[in-house]
Nucleic acid binder design. Structure first.
Lengths: 155, 155
DNA sequence: TCCAACCTTGACGTTGGCGTAAGGTGTACC
DNA sequence: GGTACACCTTACGCCAACGTCAAGGTTGGA
């Protein structure tokens, strides 16, 4: 198997996502990334989808600050989503589908709750910091004027 | 020195803040909390201020997900703020004050930048998740209707 | 055919943020 | 002054999330 058009080796993926190759292998090991296809010699071949996935994982890490285990749960829900998208499937599996959909919904709702709560608190913090900056600005003003009075332009 | 009115032992602080005693000592060790006063026997005595400080640290940890080293920088800025509040001080120290104020302002601005960026991204994620939930809801509808047609009330 | 650049799988190392156990001391209350 | 409980320091332990070799195989071009 030669390198298929559009596929990426691990080095390129690392560059484009800003993580190390070690991290990519680590994510694979932990089940956060599906094992990619390989070249004949064993080199990993990633797709654009994989790149997006990595970026998604990083966003979750950075923004939510949750563990990779939790993130795995979340991206697994993504996988379910993709699977469900391939509608054409045995009708017998409809109960299964329903279960998967339920699971995905639950996970997403949980995630949504976290995000909502955090945005809320972040906004609070944002205004607090804003207030503080204003306060600092006023103090600086006062300092400036104090200095002007203490040592009026002696030039 | 008996236990002063209004002061708290480490156990109470732990309970009220939801962290362990170990964590409180650890924060002290790392300079995130000023060494509290002590009873004659060596028991730590915390103030209400300390409690607030711990809660603040935890919020920073949880929301921003930054290292304790970074948080130290931030809460040190708080300390500067408190010091600057005691205005009555030798005039000779005005240059020093200015420097401290500058530093505090810088740190606060940096923090503000982080918070702002994160809130932004969080809001994006929020809407994404909302969309996804809607999609899931629609799919569930479809599944329901599909089932109704496949097996119409056979009672 | 040969080489440089790229990749592979182990396997051990590191850092942050605490947990936990040991062995001893303080405090409060009867 | 005994006892039950809260606290003290010291020090080793632990887990997540990678970092960092080491020793070798693959690829693609000259």
């Amino acid at each position: 198997m030669a390198e298929k058009q559009g596929d990426l080796q691990i080095g390129e993926v690392a560059q484009r996502t800003g993580v190390t190759q070690r991290t990519l292998r680590f994510y694979e090991e932990k089940g956060l990334l599906r094992p990619p296809s390989r070249m004949d010699g064993g080199f990993r071949l990633y797709s654009e989808e994989d790149v997006k996935r990595v970026q998604h994982i990083r966003r979750l890490q950075d923004l939510l600050g949750v563990s990779l285990a939790d993130i795995k749960e979340m991206v697994d829900a993504d996988e379910v989503l993709r699977e469900l998208r391939s509608q054409y499937r045995p009708e017998s599996a409809i109960t299964e589908k329903r279960k998967q959909l339920q699971k995905a919904t639950d996970v997403t709702k949980a995630q949504f709750a976290i995000v909502k709560q955090k945005t809320e608190q972040m906004r609070e913090m944002e205004t607090q910091l804003e207030e503080r900056l204003k306060l600092f600005a006023r103090w600086k003003q006062e300092l400036d004027e104090l200095e002007k009075k203490a040592a009026p332009s002696r030039g």
